[in-house]
Structures are given as C-alpha cells and as structure tokens.
Design a protein around this nucleic acid. Sequence first.
DNA 1: CTCCCTATTTACTCCGACATATTATGGGCG
DNA 2: CGCCCATAATATGTCGGAGTAAATAGGGAG
Lengths: 251, 251
Amino acid sequence: MTEAELSKEISAVKAAEEPRGPGRRLHGAIAHKLGTDILSGKYAPGDVLSGEVAFAEELQVSRSAYREAIQVLTAKGLVASRPKAGTRVLPRDRWNLLDPEVLGWAFAGEPDIEFVRSLFELRAIVEPAAARLAAQRRDKADLKAMKTALAEMRRHTLTTEAGRAADRDFHAAILHATRNQALMVLSASIGAAVNWTTQFKLRARALPRSPIPDHTKVYDAIAAGDGEGAAEAMNVLVDLALEDTRSAMTS
Amino acid sequence: MTEAELSKEISAVKAAEEPRGPGRRLHGAIAHKLGTDILSGKYAPGDVLSGEVAFAEELQVSRSAYREAIQVLTAKGLVASRPKAGTRVLPRDRWNLLDPEVLGWAFAGEPDIEFVRSLFELRAIVEPAAARLAAQRRDKADLKAMKTALAEMRRHTLTTEAGRAADRDFHAAILHATRNQALMVLSASIGAAVNWTTQFKLRARALPRSPIPDHTKVYDAIAAGDGEGAAEAMNVLVDLALEDTRSAMTS
DNA sequence: CTCCCTATTTACTCCGACATATTATGGGCG
DNA sequence: CGCCCATAATATGTCGGAGTAAATAGGGAG
C-alpha cells in the first residue's frame, strides 16, 4: 500500500467519525486494513505476516503504530505472534466473529454467503427468544419506549434514515426489556451487521422494499404479556428480513 | 500460563526492584490486570485512568507496554482514549461481554450473579436450537465423533479432567454438526466460561455432583434426525447445569 | 545417525523526542 | 458586561533506534 492510499484511508475514516464513536487513529486504520485483508481471505489462516520492520516499511508507518494494530488483531483472536516464528493468522475457529469490529471487517468486502446465512440463523434463534423474555419482564417504561419508536416508524418509512433509527430503537427497547446483558450485546451487534448488509444490498440494487413488517403485532403481544405470541410475531419479522436478503443475494 | 503466574508477574512488576523487567508478554499481563480491575468495578464507567505517564510510572513499566495494553482494552470496547481528555472507562453496554478474554476477566474475581444468570439464559436459548440444527444436518463423521466422546464420558466421570474434556468434545461435535460458524463461536465461549465457574463453585464447596446427565438421549435424537427431540433433551441438560449452579450460588 | 550447542533471526521492551488534537484560558470586540 | 476568537497548556499519538530474550536452524561432536 502506498502512502497516498493510506492517507486516503485515514481521511475517509476521519470523515466517518461518530460523535461518541472511537476516533480512529493511524493504528486503527492499519488494523482496519489488515482486518479486512484477513477477513476477505487475502491472508489465509497459517500465513505469516512478513516481519514487523518489513511491514512497517511497506506501509510507511513506524513499528509502534504497526505493533499497536497487531495488538488489536491479537485481542480479537485473528493473529498470534511468537518470537522468531513471526505473526501468523490463526484458524477461523479462533476468530472473534461476534466482535462488532470484526463483523464490520467481514462485511467491508464481499461477505461470505455462508457466514451471512449463519448470522441470520443465529438471529432467528435469538430474537424470538428475546421477544418472549421481554413479554415476561417488560415494565411501563419499556412499553412507552417501544410505543414511541413504533410511532416514529409509522411516520417515516424504512427507506429513510430516521425510519431505520426508529426501527433500531424499537428492537433496542425489546432487548432492554429482557434484562439480559449478554442478550443485549449479542443481538445488538448481530442486528447492526445484518441490517447493514441488507441495507447495502437493497440500496445497491434499488429493490422496492417489501411492505413495512407488522411490528405492531410484536408490541401487542409484549404488552399483553403473551410470550409465545411475541416470539411468533418476531419470528415472522426475522423471516421477512431473511427473504429480503435472500432475494437480493441469490439474484 | 496460569492466572496465578500472571498476577504474580504483575505484582513482581509493581514491586519491582530491578529496572530490567520480565520478558514474557508484559502488555498482556497489564491488560489482564486492568481488565479484571474494570470488570470487578474497581474502575467504574466514566472514570478516567490517570495519564499514560503516571500509570506507566505507577506500574513501573514503559509507556509502550502500557499503551499496547490499552489498545487491547480499547479493542474489546472497555475503554476509549482521546487526546487531552484521557482514557476513560466506557459504559457497560459498549463492552464486548462475549469476548472470551473479557469473560475470563469477569469470572476472575467475584462474578456478578445477574451476569451469570444472563449467560445461562442465553445458553438455554442457544444450545437446544443448536441441537435441533445438528439433528437436521449431521453426517456420519459428526455422529462418530459424538459417539467416541460419549464413550469417553462413560469411562471417566465428570469429576476428572479427562471426563470434562470428553464433555467438551461432545458439545463441540454437536456445534460442528450445525454447520454454523457464528453459533460455534458463541456457544464455545459461553460454554467455556459457564463450565469454568460451575466447576470452580462446585470444587470450592465440594458438592457431590448430580448424576451424570443423560447425554445419550441427545445423541439418539440427533442420530435419528429428530430435531425437536434433540432440542428437548438438550434443554434438560442445560436445566440440570443451571440447577447445579443455582444451588451452589444461592446457598 | 543422533544429540547438543551455537548463531541468527525475530518479536518484545524500553527510551526520549516530536507531532497533533482538544480543552481551557485570556484578551479583544460588540 | 457578555460573547467570541485566538493562543497556550496538556495528554495522547507517532516516530525511530537500541538492547534483550527466545526459538528455530544449522553445524559440530560423540
């Protein structure tokens, strides 16, 4: 990679800076590049990344920045470094595939169809169960949050950013009502990644989005304390999203 | 390297008399110390870790080693650093609670009861669904792997390390049969953490372990291709484990 | 042919300096 | 008197070099 490419990558990162998000630094950009390269298969498991000095020279960055990037990848289980042996890409089953950043890297390039299917399958397992728990444990504040999110979704459609934000709020309210931290973390990252690709694919092909799924049924079941009904209604929602993506990918 | 060795290494560093520190993965030891401190609540969300130089001096390590440790924590969503603003602990919902290392840190000290309950709940959701998928997709190699693991479990009991290894093999074989990478990663880390604490609690209180759960029913259902049966049998297993832990923790 | 020892390669750690970004402060202007 | 902008202070980010430890490879001795 040339220095021009790198600085372009950096400025691109700076442009996408979020208000509360972690401002990406140089080592962040390097980690992003190496992460996407690994996830895309450019470096296969078992490959050794040429030594520190060589790579740092090639990328025109100091060893410090390169090393800090390697620490990030190591923390996510993508690589492991040993003296003399170099830093090698670990086998896929060691990767932290549920890490939000790793998910982002996986979807940065051409996402593996099988992996996307895996995520949807996991979502289809988790989300209905979350709705069932939410129906059993929600309080008035949770219901109020869902209600306002629903109203927002009706005003805007899912084709606008405001509408999608309301959709995220709705699902986040359900997760919060489960009182389950692990479920919240998992579902939030999966949902974000899945929605991201779905949206990307749909926008790229300009597909007419299927009619707004009936989130109201989910809300009604949760409000009524009907766990089974909530799970079923949520199952329908997930299946709809799956259909959207499947039609967008297989065509 | 065991946890005891790590913390010993840390304390050796903190009380260091000689400037020439130990040579084994110093930043990893620092990350472990800071990680457990954060997970245990010693540093609350919003707290700012006193500056790089101050902390590096306090721990008697160089800025580089401290910074690389911070990169690891940043990669796991525990902290965020900004120039002039310092490094502060992020709110809990930003933490990567499903990261194996973070789970280890959470269970290193006094694990939060509510969090353990969350993990068991998630496990009760995921594992039966995994058994159902395994029943639909397993091939002969999967069944063979499960069979040998079952035989090993019968020879040794769950009180021996060999027996527990066979138990892990059995569950790993089921996960592999699902052909779902995301499920494999998730369930593997949760299972490891949960089994770890369960084992720890049981050993500490010298509780007589309940009779070996009937893994055979799960195997039979999977071999027969009976998804519902496999899910139900696995549900029984998870409930049994939950009972063991509940009785160990509430007493 | 086997085993041990040396030597090289590579990652790990430390250091001191400079660059950059953000916040705080103080002065100028309306 | 109050608001706004420029400047300074401070902590993180980046850099390159030096020295240490460890693991593999190669050569020598038995």
